[in-house]
Design a protein around this nucleic acid. Structure first.
Lengths: 155, 155
DNA sequence: CCAAGATGCTTGACGGATCAACTACTGAGG
DNA sequence: CCTCAGTAGTTGATCCGTCAAGCATCTTGG
């Protein structure tokens, strides 16, 4: 009773695989990061985005969008990181609604410590693709990313 | 102060992209499914796995593994689906520890209803890849999947 | 045959994300 | 100028998954 078309079936399998792979990879990489550097993957993800941004800061909305969280989720996540001293909240002088999340020095240190281990984990995880496969993969992901609708918090 | 190697940096970007794409896609596809068929994506995922399995059933452990949940998460998810009448728990006669999750008739109906809409959503979402890209993508995902360590619940 | 370890599933406590409501602020039109 | 719609961020309630402990059952080696 597998409903109907065979090529739609393939589509569904691919999608399932995507979700599964993303889940397994984040789990595996995240566990290692947690074990070796006591740093949740989500935190590193935030720190990386911030350190790559001009002045090491991003508005809450931009950050939430980049890490695919709703604005509420973003607020809570950075709150925890503020408590841990890795991030600061900096009010925007020209628009008093906006708040910047800004990496602290301590935050930069943590990234520097965790960085090479994280890179090693990723090298391992992506090894089966080879260099060519990795490039292709990156390109395909980019195509999917840019066409997918919008922001997490937009109805 | 972007730490060091440029090719590791690319790796980190690719990983970030993978997570982002998976998240956006599940969100978009899930929202549509929820809106059109009032069915959470995770439920459909379960129903699809079950209907594809012999006798429409899977042990709790096998199911949890397939949808990347811990065994505890699996238990709760099927409990909810049992309450909704889409799945039944069937004890295994030969090994009294194991419990099968088995699709009910009602479950099969829901899949049949949702299936074509879901397929349409996926066709849309994967459109930017084209047929060739989709094949390549599927192949790459498969390589990543088969080499990634193990089961969700295994330490 | 039975003790000890493995395995399959469930459950209580908890963490973390979502949703929706709310506050504060900005900017455009009358 | 003032109002009003739209935008940025926070927060209370809730949902869902994890972790770790626990129970039942199977299996194995002495």
């Amino acid at each position: 009773m597998s409903p109907s078309a065979p090529e739609d079936d393939a589509l569904i399998s691919t999608f399932g695989r995507l979700v599964e792979v993303a889940s397994r990879l984040t789990r595996s990489v995240g566990a290692r990061l947690e074990a070796e550097h006591d740093l949740p993957l989500a935190w590193l993800e935030v720190l990386l985005r911030l350190t790559r941004s001009p002045d090491g800061r991003l508005t809450m909305a931009a950050l939430a969008d980049q890490i695919s969280l709703t604005s509420g989720g973003g607020t809570r996540l950075v709150s925890r990181m503020v408590d841990a001293g890795l991030v600061e909240r900096v009010p925007c002088p020209t628009d008093r609604r906006v708040v910047y999340a800004s990496v602290t020095e301590r935050g930069r240190e943590r990234v520097a410590q965790a960085w090479s281990g994280h890179a090693a984990a990723l090298r391992e995880v992506f090894a089966p693709l080879g260099a060519a496969g990795l490039d292709a993969f990156d390109d395909l992901l980019d195509r999917l990313r840019t066409t997918t609708p919008g922001t997490a918090s937009r109805p």
